Simulated assay, not measured.
Amino acid sequence: MELMFAGLAGILLGVAVQFAAPHRATRGPVLLPALGGIVALVAWQALTWLQGPAPWLAYDGGWIWVITLLVAAVVTIAVGWSLSARRQHDDDDLLHRLSHLGRAQTTT
């Protein structure tokens, strides 16, 4: 049951980053929420495997939630901002190349 809540929290983090990151139109509307959910699920599962050697990662403790949500937020924010910046740069470059297509090259 906690795994479902972790995935839902990751999706909600992804929705928040989707609206907070710049150049929202350059990404699909579901990319960051899906990424947030997947990262949260993987982080939660990895942390549950570590419960044996690290008993402070118990389900009823707060650290497993803090780490899971922090990892999901960091990854989603990093991908959201870098993907937006890269896509904007590539779109500007393509526009520049297409607007100068077919013009004579000048040699100096």
Rank of each mutant, 00 (worst) to 15 (best):
E2V: 06
E2K: 06
L3W: 12
L3K: 08
M4W: 14
F5W: 15
F5N: 09
F5A: 13
F5H: 12
A6I: 04
A6W: 05
A6T: 04
A6F: 09
G7S: 11
G7L: 13
G7E: 05
L8E: 03
A9M: 12
I11R: 02
I11S: 03
I11L: 15
I11T: 12
L12A: 15
L13M: 14
G14Y: 05
G14N: 06
A16N: 01
A16Q: 03
F19R: 14
F19I: 08
A21G: 00
A21E: 09
A25Y: 01
T26N: 05
R27I: 00
G28E: 06
G28N: 10
P29W: 05
P29Y: 06
L32V: 03
P33L: 08
A34P: 00
G36N: 02
G37C: 14
I38C: 09
I38L: 15
I38G: 09
V39I: 15
V39F: 08
A40Q: 04
A40R: 04
L41H: 02
L41G: 11
L41M: 15
L41A: 15
V42H: 04
V42A: 15
V42Y: 01
W44M: 10
W44S: 03
Q45D: 06
Q45I: 03
A46F: 10
L47I: 05
T48Q: 12
T48Y: 01
W49F: 06
W49L: 10
L50G: 06
Q51G: 01
Q51E: 07
G52A: 14
P53T: 03
A54E: 11
A54M: 15
A54H: 13
P55Y: 07
P55M: 13
W56E: 14
L57D: 11
L57E: 10
L57I: 09
Y59A: 14
D60M: 06
D60Q: 14
D60V: 04
G61N: 06
G62S: 14
G62P: 07
W63H: 10
W63C: 02
W63L: 15
W65Y: 07
W65V: 06
V66A: 12
V66I: 13
V66D: 00
V66Y: 04
I67V: 15
T68A: 08
L69V: 14
L69K: 05
L69D: 02
A72D: 05
A72K: 05
A72I: 09
A72Q: 12
A73R: 04
V74W: 04
V74F: 04
V74C: 06
T76W: 09
T76D: 09
I77N: 01
A78H: 03
A78E: 02
A78C: 08
V79E: 00
V79R: 00
V79D: 01
V79M: 03
G80K: 01
W81F: 11
W81D: 00
L83M: 07
L83K: 04
L83Q: 07
S84R: 00
S84K: 00
A85S: 12
R86V: 06
R86N: 04
R87G: 02
R87K: 13
Q88I: 10
Q88S: 07
D90Y: 07
D91P: 00
D91I: 14
D92W: 07
L94F: 08
L94N: 14
L95Q: 09
H96K: 12
H96D: 11
R97L: 14
L98I: 12
H100Q: 13
L101P: 00
L101S: 05
R103D: 08
A104P: 11
Q105T: 10
Q105D: 10
T106S: 09
T106E: 07
T107Y: 09
T108E: 12
T108K: 10
